[in-house]
Design a protein around this nucleic acid. Structure first.
Lengths: 335, 335
DNA sequence: TACATTGATCGAACCGGTTCGACAAAGTCC
DNA sequence: GGACTTTGTCGAACCGGTTCGATCAATGTA
């Protein structure tokens, strides 16, 4: 039914292998033959069958993207990671197989062992991620977004959360703040092993201790109305705190209305600094000074390295763990 | 390198075809042989190669999901459509190839003509969608989410936006409102051919005319701070309006803080009704009475029908255009 | 002029499954 | 007990590409 390379060969009066070589350029083809083949391809509307090509070359030109959508998580934040991965992959000629199954380990095994993908990108990697064992056993390489406990043999990309926290504390300390509230991701994120939570918090605490200033750490909530209640309780309990650092997507998104309702003015009554991406800030119109979380850079770097490793498993060198350098964007919410 | 069906056959002392039949169950296999094959599969850790199977059966067990991420659009709203499609597809044994390319028509042609997918789901279909021509020419079936001008030969799923608007107008009319502001999607959505925009607005206007009440239609904005400015201007210009209908994701998400800043109380000063999904409302903590936009149902129905059509192109019957019945959820923002 | 080299093309094997037809052994029927 | 069906298995062809080795003509070299 569909046009095959044999149809093209017949139409051009050559053998299928010649068409294949014309397509791949792996052997020289005379100009006249090439012209006839090109004409035939155009006339018949030929596109090489992906399955057949995958079988012959053991290359699918597909990258698996493994995401975990915890129902309790703030969904809008996820897309910022998915799109850059997809776009970067396409730049290199790869398509994206989106895997959202709850049983991520089984899904990973399925797509790798069936040879559906040439490599995988794991999003939202946690401290002791059960997927990593499966990934290490797979024939295909993988790239992680998120720092796990054991990185042996894996390419890892993440934001430098410790440095992010230090930058924010330094910034506020420099402005004269001596009592700061830090709102972390929800407790269940810590429990699940979302290491970015404690990497950020612990770095903030350590830095504050060095300066001899006070930090009050709290877990944030994941959803309204709990966010508003919790924030109100925290702010009421710490009336002398002059600054607030929020490391929590859902909370920062809700903060404008929470503070407006309280009548708290920023930065007059309270300095606010946070950690989120440009796009996230734009979508939620966030006016806060914040460290850029660079999901696009993370996705892009992960795919780049993955593609390199797919192309030449040996030449790509030793596995890397690379941290994105955090950058502070001043938006006037601190004083 | 990977385990093949021949390895399994050798290990079990049978021929490859017997293993294949044991796997598919298409011919009867003696219990003892079946046991040896099962044991061999387990021992060797065999998984059938997807490319080879696709080649032999011309079935990839992959569904293409074509999304359009307009940079000016409210990204967080997109995921609510992607996830249900992915989850439903997996229920039927299909994986999802996520296609986000800007040139959607070319991408659609690419994945269909290379036989990478067994069918496609098109999200965010507009009035005169250039992808439809390509889809009609493709060998694989497709299902649309969003109503285009011409539905011939296509399975189409959408919310009944006209009915949604009527329900909201009826609701407010019943509560005694006689002057209502309607905020539509941004103008560029109309220009692009997002028919849901005018289907909703025109139905609202028509209904209001029937009741002899006043409706002031406005285009909404897509981003802050334009949203806030525009909403303030609109509310200032219509001080006698007692109710507001918002058909615009970005605007409704920003509305709580806009109204809080103005000091407008809901529903005392202004009744507010809208159109959004449960999940969206939860993510943004929206307290408004609204028609449920049911992205999960749309995605699920689209995949269901697509799978049916893939399984038996003839038996699936004539193409359908099905509208989800809108349902009003009272949340107390109207009085 | 004889011989090695290069360029262009073809045939055949192969990738790893599925499926059709054949066939022997076992079971059913009269 | 012979004819007929059913059951279980195998071999071979096929799906649609890629790639290796061989062939042959044209060109370069001694």
């Amino acid at each position: 039914m569909a046009i095959t390379i044999t149809d093209v060969a017949r139409h051009a009066g050559v053998s299928p292998s010649t068409v294949s070589y014309a397509l791949s350029g792996k052997r020289s083809i005379s100009p006249s033959t090439r012209a006839r083949i090109d004409e035939a391809i155009l006339a018949l509307g030929f596109t090489a069958n992906a399955g057949a090509r995958a079988l012959a070359t053991s290359q699918t030109m597909v990258i698996g993207l493994l995401t975990q959508f915890h129902q309790d998580e703030f969904a809008p934040a996820m897309l910022q990671y998915v799109l850059p991965v997809s776009d970067t992959a396409r730049e290199f000629g790869y398509d994206i197989l989106l895997v959202t199954e709850t049983d991520a380990t089984a899904a990973l095994r399925r797509v790798t062992s069936a040879g559906m993908v040439d490599g995988v990108v794991l999003l939202d990697v946690v401290h002791e991620d059960p997927r990593l064992e499966t990934l290490r056993a797979a024939a295909q390489p993988g790239a992680l977004v998120g720092l796990p406990k054991r990185t042996e043999g894996l390419d890892v990309f993440d934001l430098d959360f410790g440095e992010s926290a230090r930058i924010l504390v330094d910034h506020l300390y420099g402005l004269g703040h001596r009592e700061i509230i830090v709102v972390s991701p929800p407790k269940h994120v810590f429990d699940r092993g979302g290491a970015y939570g404690w990497r950020f918090r612990d770095a903030a605490l350590e830095r504050a201790a060095r300066y001899g200033i006070q930090i009050h750490p709290y877990f944030g909530e994941a959803q309204q109305p709990a966010i508003g209640q919790s924030m109100n309780a925290i702010l009421d309990a710490r009336p002398t705190a002059t600054a607030l650092i929020v490391h929590n997507d859902a909370t920062i998104a809700a903060l404008p209305s929470v503070l407006a309702t309280r009548g708290t003015r920023v930065p007059e009554d309270l300095s606010v600094a946070s950690l989120y991406s440009k796009d996230f800030g734009r979508a939620f119109s966030l006016p806060y000074t914040a460290v850029e979380s660079s999901p696009d850079q993370l996705g892009q770097n992960a795919v780049r390295q993955l593609v390199r490793r797919i192309a030449s498993p040996e030449l790509a060198g030793a596995p890397v763990t690379r941290f994105i350098a955090p950058e502070l964007t001043i938006r006037g919410s601190t004083a």
